[in-house]
Nucleic acid binder design. Structure first.
Lengths: 205, 205
DNA sequence: CTATAAACCGACTATCGGTTTGTCAACGGG
DNA sequence: CCCGTTGACAAACCGATAGTCGGTTTATAG
């Protein structure tokens, strides 16, 4: 094996860690490559050797954070012991809301990522993590007749958006504890309503 | 009166219009002040005389667009002839979704604004327009016993987020027409569920 | 006519993302 | 053991861009 490559990977990893801190703290635009280089103690050439540009460095950071969050959320859902859709979703959403209290997750994933990576690429990544899981669980709910089958896709988007919004509201509330309590109650009721058996009628205009 | 001031306001307005086009087309970062100056036929000094910086120019654009959209949405809701919460919300959400098909609205309001202005300021503006209206209507629904009173606030956020998400999904879908149809059905069902009379029980784990 | 101030102009600066050229040390075939 | 190759890193440099600043024009007031 090549010791040079190991050293390179260590540098790369180190850059991602440093960049994660700075991006979370100052945002993407507010973070200069210069600042990353200085704090990481790495030269320009080295950084550009590992990443084709600032945007790709950011993308690497996003993926790293997303992976961490995805694992944690999945673990929480599993740990809840729930097996049916409602329980799983509740556990996952609440876990997600708590994770989003972290400035790293909030700023990088919720605020900057869609703009920097562009909505399409951002959504592709989401698909791979949160949205994919939501769809799976919702499909299960659809099979149980709790959600119209053709609405699985849009409902998954709505659940995702609602979770993100709740996370942001909590994170930036004046009284975080109170907001947390309220939001959890709201999520609970929201999921109850979204997963109710569809005996619904047409409320035509 | 002073004709100079009129001229100044005209210049200011013209800058906002030109900037709106460019921001919508190329995004905030992709739009240079230089480009705005050139297309507007205005000098640097003049622009900086009217706006303290690029960000404040963007903010002026955001407010202008938001005002337009707010008026249009309100008009659609009124025109629907609905008087109760469900009808009003449905009309407003559908109108909003259609408006968000416009690249100006989508790129400026949905994509760039939260990042450029920061989530807090962005939310303050939203509060003044869309979110404020949603809360009012939801409060009405709460009075009719269709929504728990203490959940009016979080539900308003969820409705807002869901509407924005649907708008984005449609705008960037491969088959826009199909996505539009699906999304409208989803919004319809979503609102039905969110505004159902709360005879609900505790679905404890 | 003169003083004043709003509107406007354009050269200049600092910063920042990205490029290019170059150095060095580790690897591996002969 | 030698030497060409390759990965990692270094640093001078470039173009673009947001923002600044002293100066000029122009219309109004006294």
């Amino acid at each position: 094996m090549d010791r040079r490559v190991d050293r390179g990977q260590a540098t790369r990893q180190h850059l991602i860690e440093v960049a994660t801190e700075l991006f979370a703290d100052r945002g993407y635009e507010g973070t200069s490559i210069e600042a990353v280089l200085e704090r990481a103690g790495v030269s320009r050439g080295s950084l550009y050797h590992h990443f084709p540009g600032k945007e790709r460095l950011f993308e690497a950071v996003v993926e790293a954070v997303h992976t961490r969050v995805g694992e944690a959320t999945l673990a929480a859902a599993t740990a809840s012991g729930a097996t049916e859709a409602h329980g799983l979703l509740k556990a996952a959403e609440l876990a997600w809301i708590r994770l989003a209290g972290d400035a790293v997750v909030r700023r990088i994933l919720l605020i900057d990522a869609p703009t920097v990576l562009g909505w399409r690429r951002w959504r592709a990544i989401e698909e791979q993590y949160g949205l994919g899981m939501l769809k799976t669980v919702l499909q299960e709910a659809a099979d149980a007749g709790r959600v119209p089958a053709q609405l699985v896709e849009p409902f998954a988007h709505i659940l995702l958006a609602a979770g993100n919004e709740m996370a942001l509201v909590i994170a930036l509330a004046d009284d975080v504890a109170a907001a947390q309590t309220t939001a959890e109650a709201a999520v609970e009721e929201f999921l109850n309503r979204m997963l109710q058996p569809t005996e619904s009628e047409n409320t035509e205009t």
